[in-house]
Amino acid sequence: MDCTIDELMIACMARSLKGEVLVSSVTALGALSAHLAKKTHAPDLAVLSTPESGMEVTPLPTLTLGQFLTDDQRGIPLTMEDIFDAIFLDRFRIWISPAQIDRHGNVNISCVGPWEQPKVALVGARGIPEDTSHLSEILYYVTSHSPRTVVEQVDFRSGAGNGAERDRLLGRRGAPTRLVTNLGVFDFGGADGTLRAVSLHPGVTREAVAQGSGCEIDLPADLPETALPSAADVAVIRSADPLGARKLEFLSGREAAQRLVEIYERERQALHIAAWPRRARIS
């Protein structure tokens, strides 16, 4: 099946979601992977909306920044306490997109350079410390796999990876389990819980991964090619995101912001049409 890299990544991400757990949809790729998993192999997933937390919602990707547009999209309302209780009880999954991830699966969304005097101040640890101390599956994705994003050691540990400190303080609770990038699918089955390739995307060579990473990655000899999504999978993704919000995570900051403003407005118009079908169709 012909598909683009965003669709391939979403399909890979969907394969890790299963069972009856809350699934965050805080980013477009996260939302679409939850949606695809629920439509295919994991019908019991309770997909959340953001930021107005509701359960049993079909996520609209741009609403990662927006609001419910109609009461229909509200689903079953949840509180912050409900969400963190689900995290502490390990009944929650989230795909996290860190600015940096290192060989041991530590992640950083706080700063580039030293925290006290950062070269670039990013956003702050948010809920990652909670996730990486409680969940039995910790899922990361990176849309631009490069020596700047996949590094030997993160500048700041916003989330706990593998290592002696974790083993002593947390055991396996919250340990990293998966990384999906634009080059391949990885786990942390390398020596001492380090990055190891599980499959490489079509056309991606072992050399491209080695050169494209800022750290050594275990590349087993018999490395398969990532399975492509089926035509039906791709159709589910495209129909859930007709305006292409999933492409934004592959654009530069300013370009993404401009595109989002446009998509946000088109989505509002489209939903108004859905609510009042007699209005003229706006293309």
């Binding site: 706080s110 925290w115 640890a125 990652i128 410390p129 909670e130 990486t132 101390s133 409680h134 700041f156 540990r157 916003s158 989330g159 706990a160 290592g163 400190e165 974790r166 303080l169 947390l170 609770r173």
Partner: peptide, 9 residues
């Protein structure tokens, strides 16, 4: 809480 353990926070 356990949140924050094994991080640089």
């Amino acid at each position: 809480t356990h949140a924050g353990l094994a991080t640089d926070l």
